[in-house]
């Protein structure tokens, strides 16, 4: 059933590893954000700890926008978006393939940029930081599940990047705000059981966004 999704995923990752276009651009962009903020503000470590989660997610989200735009731009090139609409498969499978490729690329980028973030903001590694894994995973999935379908909508228009931002930001902001809060709790070592309902809430939004997008994707592919 999911063979189409895996074929699309394999194709997208092969193209990305060959060109490294998205991941490199995302990495450089995030590095710039960290450098600028690090050298612009002379603040104490305590203040830095407070703004660091927000900075991290600013880097993730702005870079993620680039990845989302890229994901369907490469399909629009050479008419492959039309080829997708002609495929004898359920649109949901195409959505899953694109969602997985965007999510994997974004998670790889996050794994590559996180050590730089630790170094720049002089954060101390601890076992508790492993709790960042579910937080980043849940936040990223929420962002990409919604971003993938909206990117497919926006790619049909001339002002693709503007439209994607306009559509995505209002809907995804609760997930980003909760993810920033949770990241702050992990980095300051305050991640307790009381934080889990917030993580569950992010997870619930992920499920809702993913399910709706899966069901609606067939209509998006039509002219």
């Amino acid at each position: 059933m999911m063979s189409t999704a895996f074929s699309i995923l394999k194709k997208d990752l092969r193209m990305e590893f060959r060109s490294k276009e998205s991941i490199l651009a995302m990495w450089i962009f995030s590095l710039l954000i960290f450098v600028i903020f690090n050298f612009t503000f002379e603040v104490s470590r305590l203040v830095m700890l407070e703004i660091a989660p927000g900075l991290l997610w600013v880097a993730f989200v702005f870079s993620g926008m680039f990845g989302l735009n890229q994901s369907f731009s490469m399909e629009k090139e050479n008419g492959n978006l039309r080829a997708m609409a002609l495929m004898p498969v359920d649109g949901g499978q195409i959505y899953v393939g694109k969602f997985l490729s965007v999510t994997i690329i974004m998670l790889m980028f996050e794994a590559l940029i996180f050590p730089i973030f630790i170094i720049f903001y002089d954060l101390q590694l601890s076992l508790g930081m492993f709790m960042l894994i579910p937080v980043l995973l849940a936040g990223t999935i929420g962002f990409t599940s919604l971003g993938t379908i909206l990117s497919a909508v926006a790619v049909h228009t001339r002002n693709q990047q503007i439209l994607l931002s306009l559509l995505l930001w209002p809907l995804v902001s609760p997930i980003i705000i909760w993810s920033v809060t949770l990241t702050g709790m992990v980095l300051s070592g305050e991640m307790t059981e009381a934080c889990y309902p917030l993580l569950v809430r992010v997870g619930a939004f992920d499920v809702i966004f993913f399910t709706l997008s899966y069901m609606l994707f067939d209509f998006i592919l039509e002219d």
Partner: peptide, 27 residues
Amino acid sequence: LAVISHEMFLYGNLTALENLEYYSRIY
């Protein structure tokens, strides 16, 4: 159904073989 138009329906960053393998899996 198959459509041939002025649009390629191919990925420039893949080889001919990879493009055909991709479409053969889809179809």
